[in-house]
Design a protein around this nucleic acid. Structure first.
Lengths: 239, 239
DNA sequence: CAACATTTTTAGGTTAGCCTAAACTTAGGT
DNA sequence: ACCTAAGTTTAGGCTAACCTAAAAATGTTG
C-alpha cells in the first residue's frame, strides 16, 4: 500500500546498497534509526565488493537523491532513501516470516532465500503474505518488521547474551547475524528467539562464554554470544 | 531433486530465451515436444527485443551447448537446453499454482508475478511448494507442469473452442495466452479451466464466435476463442 | 532466373555494475 | 608540525545484454 513512487525504478544493486547503509548506520542494535554515517570500507566489506565500486554507486545514489555522500566522510540516507531501505527490509523480513511459518523452513534457513526474493515480489505479494501472517511485528530472527506505513515496532530493551552476569537468566529476543554457519550452530544448540539461556558461574573467560540451554551446558565463542540479544529474567525463573 | 548441473549458472535472460524457444517450438499446442526450429524473428517478437540482439544471445547459448543454431535457418534446443527449459517452466507453473491456491490470487493474475519469481527461487522452495500443492499436474491456466523428473503429464486430447460445432458443449481445459488483457476478459466472462461453454447456433461468423457461459450469451472475438482449449462434451450435458 | 523484399547477421555503440592500479586525502603518533 | 598508514577516489577496463544501421543471405515472384 505504501508503494514509493520514484522517477527511476531502482536496480537490485541499488536497493541492496540502501538496505546495507541502513543496517550499518543503525549499528546492529536493532533500533534502525540511521544515526551514524557509514564508511565506504564498511559497505565494501559487508557487500563483498571493492571500495572503488562503492564510491561509484554512492555517486549514482547521491544523484538520485537517495543518499548524501560527503567525500572521505561517509554516507547517510536521505528521507527518501530511508523509506526505500525500510521497504526493502520489510520485504525481506516478511518473506523470512512467511517461509518459516507457511512453508516450514527452519528459522536459520530463511535468510538466503529472502535475500534473493526481496527484490522480485510485487506490492500485491507483500500485502498477501502480510495478511496471511497476521501482520507480524518481528521476523524469525527476532528482527523488527516495518509496518506497511514503514513504522517500526517499539522493542523492549534488551542486551547482548555476552553481557549477562554470572548466574543470570535471559530470554532470547534476537539473533543478530546473517552468517549462515553462525546461524546453523546457534540453531543446533537451540539458541533461538524464545529460548531461555542461563549464564553459568564463571561464564566469562578468554576461552569463551559458558551458558546453559535446557539441560545442556555449552562453551560458546564469545563473538557468537554477542550476536544473541536477550531480555534478562532474574534468577528466580530457573528451570 | 532434479537440479541440473551446468558449468556456468545461467542468467535470467538466458533462462528466458530457453523457455521461449521451447514454447515457440512446440507451437502453442500444449504438447511441449520441441518439434520445429524457431526463427530469430519470432523470438524477437515474443520477447520484445530486436532480432540483432537475439542473434547475439543465440551465439552464446550455442557455445554453451544449450541450443543448435544454424545461421539463417533457426534454432533448436539440445537435450540439455530442453531440460533447462522444462525446469524453468516447472518453476513458473508451480509458482502460478501456488499463488492461486495458497495466496488467493485470481487465475488470470498469476502470470506476471510468476514471470519474475521463476528465476529467483531455490530448488528447496520449488520442492516445498510442490509438496504443499500435492504435486499438481496442471497450473491455473490448465498448462501442464513438468514433474520433478521433468516428465510431462499425458493430456487428454482437446480442441480449440473456436472449432466446436454449432450447439456443441465443451469443458474448458486450457486458456493458452499470456496476454493480460485477454486473460482479464476471459476471467470476467467466467471462461476458465473447468467451466462449461456452449457453441451457439450460427456461432461462427465474421463478427466473432457466439458462445454461452452459464446463463449468459457472448459474442467473443474469434482470436480469443482460439486461445481457449476445450474437451467436447456432447449436447446431452446441456444445462 | 534475375531482382527485390524479407530475414538475418555483422559492426559498432550504450549502460549498469563490477574490477585493478595509481593518486590522493585524512588522521594518528612522535 | 610532519610523516606514514589507512581509507578513499579517480582513471581506465571488462562483461552482459541490450540498441541502431548497414551488409549479406534467402527465397519468392514475374
Amino acid at each position: 500500500m505504501n508503494q514509493l513512487i520514484l522517477k527511476t525504478p531502482l536496480s537490485e544493486a541499488q536497493e541492496d546498497y540502501l538496505k546495507q547503509i541502513l543496517l550499518l548506520s543503525s549499528g546492529g542494535t536493532g533500533s534502525l534509526e540511521p544515526t551514524l554515517a557509514v564508511s565506504t570500507q564498511d559497505l565494501a566489506d559487508e557487500m563483498q565488493i571493492k571500495p572503488a565500486s562503492v564510491t561509484g554507486m554512492l555517486k549514482k545514489l547521491s544523484e538520485h537523491g537517495l543518499v548524501e555522500h560527503e567525500a572521505y566522510r561517509g554516507v547517510r540516507l536521505t528521507a527518501t532513501g530511508y523509506k526505500v531501505a525500510l521497504e526493502v527490509l520489510r520485504h525481506h523480513r516478511l518473506i523470512e516470516a512467511y517461509l518459516h511459518q507457511a512453508l516450514g523452513y527452519g528459522w536459520e534457513e530463511v535468510h538466503a532465500e529472502a535475500e534473493r526474493l526481496e527484490h522480485h515480489i510485487s506490492e500485491a505479494f507483500e500485502a498477501r503474505i502480510a495478511e496471511w501472517l497476521g501482520h507480524p511485528s518481528h521476523d524469525p530472527h527476532g528482527d523488527p518488521i516495518p509496518s506497511a506505513q514503514l513504522e517500526l515496532p517499539q522493542d523492549a530493551p534488551s542486551q547482548r547474551l555476552s553481557s549477562l552476569e554470572d548466574g543470570e537468566y535471559g530470554l532470547v529476543m534476537r539473533v543478530a547475524t546473517q552468517d549462515q554457519d553462525a546461524l546453523n550452530l546457534l540453531a543446533r544448540l537451540g539458541i533461538r528467539p524464545g529460548a531461555k539461556v542461563e549464564m553459568l558461574m564463571l561464564g566469562h573467560s578468554v576461552e569463551g562464554t559458558r551458558v546453559r540451554v535446557g539441560e545442556q551446558r555449552y562453551l560458546l565463542p564469545t563473538n557468537l554470544a554477542q550476536m544473541v540479544w536477550v531480555s534478562p529474567l532474574g534468577d528466580e525463573y530457573a528451570g
